[in-house]
Amino acid sequence: MTNRKIILFAAAVLTASMASQAAMAVGDDTSEPPKKTKTTTQCTDGKIWDAEQNRCVEPKKSSLNDDILFDAARELAYAGQYENAIRVLDAMKERQSARVFNYLGYANRKAGRTEVGMQYYKRALQADENYILARSYMGQALVEQGRMEEAKVQLVEIRDRGGENTWAYRALLQSLGGLRRY
């Protein structure tokens, strides 16, 4: 399949997926960016919201479980608080998972450390080669570096792994089209 055909196919899939609105579950890390919570609206200095204590807490000193810490790190990363996101990810017990490596990659890349980010994306894919969000973010980093052919390979990988109706696929497709980068 030629590159032109891949792009045309991808555009058709994007249109179809938007029409059908095949949405991922809210809170799933392959869905759209998270909604803001008190972690980003009230907490400062890298603290995160603890609903049980009804206050902002230090991530390393909290008794919050890894899922809550992960959601907070993801929210912080999307809010542009990359160093705080990394601190929260470092507070997790689950340090060797694809999702943690992926967001360490995202936060480092967005903080200007693209090569560090790329290493984390690779580690995410070593942990789970089907982790399509890591492929999407890696592809977006490749687009930022002008490595369009390599980014297209990641788009095809996402599609071939059943991810063509996902936010991860649409985000990379948009980046390849120059519409928006996440």
Rank of each mutant, 00 (worst) to 15 (best):
Y78W: 15
A77F: 04
A151F: 01
G178A: 02
M138S: 12
M118K: 12
M138G: 06
V57Y: 05
A12V: 08
A111L: 07
V88Q: 04
D128L: 02
Q42E: 15
R74Y: 07
A151N: 06
R180E: 12
G46N: 01
I6S: 03
L173M: 13
S31V: 02
I132R: 06
A98W: 01
N165A: 12
E83I: 07
K60F: 03
V100Q: 11
T37S: 15
K152F: 00
Q126E: 14
I48G: 05
L173Q: 11
A111R: 09
E164G: 07
N65S: 11
T40H: 08
I6K: 11
L176M: 05
I7M: 14
R113E: 09
G27V: 09
I48T: 09
Q42L: 10
A25E: 14
R87Y: 09
A11N: 13
D29H: 14
R181D: 10
L155K: 04
L8F: 13
Y78F: 15
L104V: 01
T166D: 00
Q96R: 13
Y131I: 06
R74F: 05
V153N: 08
K38Y: 06
L155C: 01
W49I: 05
D66Q: 05
E94Q: 13
S63A: 12
F70L: 13
L179E: 10
A85P: 07
N165H: 12
I158L: 02
W49H: 08
S62P: 08
L176A: 01
D29A: 15
C43V: 11
M92C: 05
I158N: 02
Y131V: 04
R170A: 13
R109W: 08
S63R: 13
L64R: 08
C43H: 06
D90I: 03
T30D: 11
N165Y: 11
K38E: 15
N54F: 00
S20W: 13
R4L: 07
R4E: 12
T37L: 03
V57M: 00
Q140A: 05
M118V: 13
N84C: 00
I68N: 06
R99A: 03
A141C: 11
Q174T: 08
V156G: 00
T41D: 10
T40G: 05
A77W: 06
T41E: 12
N102E: 04
M118Y: 00
E129I: 11
T166W: 03
R74I: 10
M18C: 06
E129N: 13
S62R: 06
D90Q: 14
